[in-house]
């Protein structure tokens, strides 16, 4: 029973980690909590569902949807955030802008698709493997494998590629990166693209896990993922994974022990505790105050 809860938590936690990566990457470079990320995730799941309904085949629908969501991420940056950077506006303006973007995306989805929950097809065959007392459904295994593979991919991109190097340089010092000839705006757009794509993949996995998708799904999921990102230390990819797992497992326990109505609040309770006790997260770094 205990192990089963952990297993369920891990499965869903992996998808939070995937969403958390989007927050983490963007925050690392721009020091901005991209509030619109949850709605990007919802857009991913809902657009893929819509594409599937066009009968172009599940795999092409998913691939196109992922690509579209990545592009949406870039669009958000180009239309709403880059102009603010050019004006070197205060941080609060960007934050409020992303809240606005989130509202626009979510409510456009509602206006076009309706706010009701719609059935999402299962991506993995039904069936399960039983190891000892724990039951692994094929869906869970599929989610685990895909999430883990994706996270490793992302880590490799950041750590081993040229663009990853540029990302890390921009994260350290955006001005210096610019002076070194790095096209910072491209790096940021690429970051949004990566964030959008992984959010879409997470959206697909979660929707298929719960067999449903709806426009408002991004709100709580986004917040939980944000909690995960902060928990692990925002700006750190392994941190996102760790944070995602902690949030996933704890909410899985909260739902069983305290009742399902506590599921959604759990992430916030953890988040608030972490922020107050250790604002830099598990794997975050400290900074010195300058006057």
């Amino acid at each position: 029973m205990l192990l089963q809860q952990i297993m369920n938590g891990v499965t869903i936690g992996m998808t939070y980690a995937l969403i958390a990566v989007g927050y983490s990457l963007v925050f690392g470079i721009l020091r901005l909590v991209n509030f619109s990320h949850g709605s990007v995730y919802a857009f991913g799941a809902n657009s893929i569902l819509f594409l599937i309904s066009l009968n172009i085949g599940i795999i092409p629908a998913i691939l196109i949807g992922i690509l579209l969501t990545g592009i949406l991420g870039v669009l958000i940056d180009k239309t709403a955030l880059e102009p603010l950077r050019k004006k070197s506006a205060e941080g609060i303006t960007s934050l409020i802008t992303t809240i606005g973007v989130s509202s626009v995306i979510t409510n456009l989805l509602i206006a076009r698709l309706g706010s009701q929950k719609k059935a999402f097809p299962a991506l993995f065959p039904t069936g399960e493997i039983i190891v000892g007392s724990i039951k692994f459904t094929y869906t869970q295994i599929g989610m685990l494998v895909i999430s883990l593979a994706l996270l490793i991919c992302l880590l490799l991109i950041v750590e081993r590629t040229k663009i990853g190097l540029a990302m890390r340089a921009s994260e350290q010092n955006i001005t210096a990166a610019k002076l070194m000839g790095i096209n910072v705006n491209f790096v940021i757009s690429f970051t949004f693209f990566l964030g959008g794509m992984s959010a879409a993949i997470a959206g697909t996995l979660v929707s298929s896990y719960y067999n449903m998708a709806y426009p408002n799904m991004g709100y709580t999921a986004g917040l939980k993922a944000f909690a995960a990102a902060v928990l692990g230390g925002i700006g750190s990819l392994p941190g996102s994974l760790l944070g995602g797992l902690v949030v996933g497992i704890s909410e899985s326990f909260a739902a069983t022990v305290l009742g399902s109505e506590f599921r959604d609040s759990m992430a916030f309770i953890i988040l608030i505790c972490v922020l107050i006790i250790r604002p830099n997260g598990f794997l975050g770094k400290k900074s010195i105050k300058k006057v």
Binding site: G91, E261, F268, L271
Partner: peptide, 27 residues
């Protein structure tokens, strides 16, 4: 929390508070 947190983090706390209040209402 504003003892320790500033800016965005504080905003997130307030957001979490808004959600927790709703859970409290339900529970």
């Amino acid at each position: 929390p504003s003892l320790r947190l500033t800016g965005t983090y504080l905003s997130i706390i307030t957001l979490g508070f808004g959600e927790i209040i709703r859970t409290v209402i339900i529970v």
